[in-house]
Computed example of a mutant assay.
Amino acid sequence: MVRTFALLGVLFSGFLVWLIVSADAGRSNPLFELAHSIPYGDKLGHMILFGTLTLFANVGSRFRRVSLGKVRPYLGAVVVTIVVIIEECSQQYFPSRTFDGYDLLADGVGIMLFSLLSLYLEKRFFTSNESTR
């Protein structure tokens, strides 16, 4: 199951790269149009897309954690957070994009919610032996 999530994470990352490159180039696609047709659809999209990536990364990395002082977040969530910050900040260098702090906030909410889902899945379906293999 962990390998399946890892593979899904790689495939989903490729999908996200395609979306980001399309947006950076100023190209439209049906997903962008759908997001713009729903109130707050862009923010909802950010939450779902980066939350899903977080879930795949957390499970795919066997729920591995890192120590940040007294906090021990999932490694996958930390990596996705770093990528999200870099991607959002890089938008200032593309004429078709703009930095939006609310997008960053929506990404963070998605990362947190899907990390909570990861915690549930870890406790519900994985024993400590399975998550450390």
Results as ranks from 00 to 15, higher is better:
1 M>E: 08
5 F>Y: 13
6 A>T: 05
6 A>V: 03
6 A>F: 13
8 L>N: 09
11 L>C: 13
14 G>V: 05
14 G>Y: 09
15 F>Q: 11
16 L>W: 10
16 L>T: 11
16 L>S: 09
17 V>E: 12
18 W>R: 12
19 L>D: 14
19 L>T: 11
20 I>V: 14
21 V>G: 01
21 V>F: 09
22 S>Y: 07
23 A>T: 12
24 D>L: 09
25 A>D: 11
25 A>N: 14
26 G>E: 07
28 S>F: 10
28 S>H: 02
28 S>K: 02
29 N>K: 02
29 N>H: 11
29 N>D: 14
31 L>A: 15
31 L>C: 07
32 F>H: 12
32 F>R: 10
34 L>R: 06
35 A>Q: 14
35 A>W: 08
36 H>F: 03
36 H>R: 12
38 I>Q: 07
39 P>S: 11
40 Y>I: 06
41 G>Y: 08
41 G>C: 11
42 D>M: 05
44 L>H: 06
47 M>E: 09
49 L>V: 13
49 L>S: 15
50 F>W: 11
51 G>A: 10
52 T>N: 06
52 T>P: 04
53 L>Y: 07
54 T>D: 07
54 T>G: 04
56 F>C: 05
57 A>Y: 09
57 A>E: 03
60 G>K: 07
61 S>H: 09
61 S>M: 11
61 S>Q: 09
62 R>V: 06
62 R>A: 13
63 F>C: 04
64 R>K: 15
64 R>N: 13
65 R>K: 15
68 L>F: 05
68 L>Q: 04
69 G>H: 02
70 K>F: 04
70 K>P: 08
71 V>H: 10
71 V>S: 10
71 V>D: 08
71 V>Q: 12
73 P>R: 00
73 P>C: 03
75 L>E: 03
76 G>W: 00
76 G>Q: 00
77 A>M: 00
78 V>Y: 05
78 V>C: 07
79 V>R: 04
80 V>G: 00
80 V>T: 04
80 V>I: 14
83 V>S: 04
83 V>P: 03
84 V>W: 03
86 I>Q: 11
86 I>W: 13
88 E>L: 03
90 S>D: 11
91 Q>T: 06
92 Q>T: 11
94 F>S: 13
95 P>M: 12
95 P>T: 14
95 P>G: 10
99 F>K: 02
100 D>I: 03
103 D>A: 06
103 D>K: 01
103 D>F: 06
103 D>I: 06
103 D>G: 05
104 L>F: 02
105 L>C: 00
105 L>P: 01
106 A>F: 05
107 D>V: 00
107 D>G: 02
108 G>M: 09
109 V>T: 08
109 V>S: 03
110 G>M: 03
110 G>D: 10
110 G>Q: 02
111 I>W: 06
111 I>F: 08
112 M>T: 15
113 L>D: 12
114 F>S: 04
114 F>W: 13
114 F>T: 05
116 L>P: 02
116 L>T: 05
116 L>K: 09
118 S>M: 01
118 S>D: 04
119 L>N: 10
120 Y>P: 01
121 L>Q: 09
122 E>F: 08
122 E>R: 15
123 K>Q: 14
124 R>L: 09
124 R>T: 15
124 R>H: 15
124 R>S: 15
125 F>A: 12
126 F>Y: 15
126 F>K: 08
128 S>I: 10
128 S>F: 11
129 N>P: 03
129 N>L: 13
133 R>I: 14
